[in-house]
Design a protein around this nucleic acid. Sequence first.
DNA 1: GTCTATATTGACAATCGTTCTCAACAATCC
DNA 2: GGATTGTTGAGAACGATTGTCAATATAGAC
Lengths: 144, 144
Amino acid sequence: MATEARRAIGERSTRQRTAVAAVLQEVDDFRSAQDLHQMLRRKGERVGLATVYRSLRAMADAGDIDILVTADGESLYRRCGQGAGHHHHLVCRGCGLTIEISAPAVERWASTVAVDHGFTDAQHTLDIFGTCQDCVDQEAAQAR
Amino acid sequence: MATEARRAIGERSTRQRTAVAAVLQEVDDFRSAQDLHQMLRRKGERVGLATVYRSLRAMADAGDIDILVTADGESLYRRCGQGAGHHHHLVCRGCGLTIEISAPAVERWASTVAVDHGFTDAQHTLDIFGTCQDCVDQEAAQAR
DNA sequence: GTCTATATTGACAATCGTTCTCAACAATCC
DNA sequence: GGATTGTTGAGAACGATTGTCAATATAGAC
């Protein structure tokens, strides 16, 4: 019987978990779990969908990846700068291009707002969505 | 055959739609569609779940209510200050207490960030979650 | 008020992303 | 090698949301 505390998920290194981490390294933008599962299949990696979800959740809990919930409730995942700490995202609606943004001033503002209203343990979400230059150009080309 | 353009949903005023709007007036915080449906039933109003969803979507499209998507993908709805324009929320994780916040400086910042990176048609989401004073007090009382 | 056109409703099926179940499996430690 | 136990996979289950379509109610014309 173990005297140590219960181990967190992600203790063992397995082929599947390595594969999920690897495929996340290949893309720069946010992808859904289903997308990532498809990518793994195409690469010939045989990983169950449930395992993809479990691995992603474990990585998110460990702070190794970012999660972004879309307006229709789907969760998107993306690796983030190791140890980059808290940051936000500028995401292209067309191609998914994602740019990480730091905004210390906004952090301070959010913190102040919370304190001013008597709130403690404050966290916040902040993401900007738009259309990047490339996608604007493409749309213009297609409209022709 | 009508020569006019297709009418938007929400053209007619019905008992059901009035009921959904009324129940939204009774609460100050964000509620799920399922919650609101339950509240209607308890009040004796017989409104189908699908109709609740349709009404909420119509109101959201008209800009009469706010939508907030939780981390687990559920959509929450709340009436918002009529014509208050764009604003953000400070939400209590414990009781759901919601405070509307305006932050012109943040609006400008977000807009600038988007433009600087060549993004157009930018929108953003920004919400702060924390624990309000009342909930902190309650937790402290229970821990005793 | 009556009539008509049609927007709206409701019950239920269908969809979709995500989580659960549990027997089979494999990583780690001895 | 063998035991222990975290992990996996297939499919079922789940929950929120949307689609379907006949029945109904509303707004405006008469």
